[in-house]
């Protein structure tokens, strides 16, 4: 990796030591305590880091009432 390049601070071991330019990298997932199973079922994953609900209303769009009823105001169901 070139000296002056900066990569975001990520947990150790989630990126290969040497990374070539012009390649896309997905950081390797590290273990984290799983969510309680009921919450995990609603979120669709046992890992909080992977729970990426669709954030309605961001970017100035108004909330879609029907979607809010299903997904809740924060999109977390």
């Amino acid at each position: 990796m070139l000296q002056d390049q900066t990569i975001p601070v990520v947990p150790e071991g989630t990126f290969p030591p040497r990374m070539s330019l012009a390649m896309a990298y997905v950081p390797f997932q590290c273990w984290e305590e799983p969510l309680p199973e009921y919450k995990a079922l609603c979120q669709g994953t046992v890992f909080a880091s992977l729970a990426k609900p669709f954030m309605m209303g961001k970017g100035g769009r108004s909330y879609d009432e029907e979607a809010v009823e299903v997904m809740g105001r924060d999109g977390k169901g």
């Binding site: 273990w31 799983p34 995990a40 079922l41």
Partner: peptide, 29 residues
């Protein structure tokens, strides 16, 4: 719900273990 939630959790942890086969925490979970 408990049956469904726990079954889901097992399958999701299985996916994690597929890419982290030696993770003891994941296996005990």
């Amino acid at each position: 719900r408990a049956v469904q939630a726990n079954q889901f959790a097992v399958r999701d942890l299985m996916l994690y273990l597929d890419t982290h086969p030696t993770d003891a925490n994941a296996l005990s979970a």
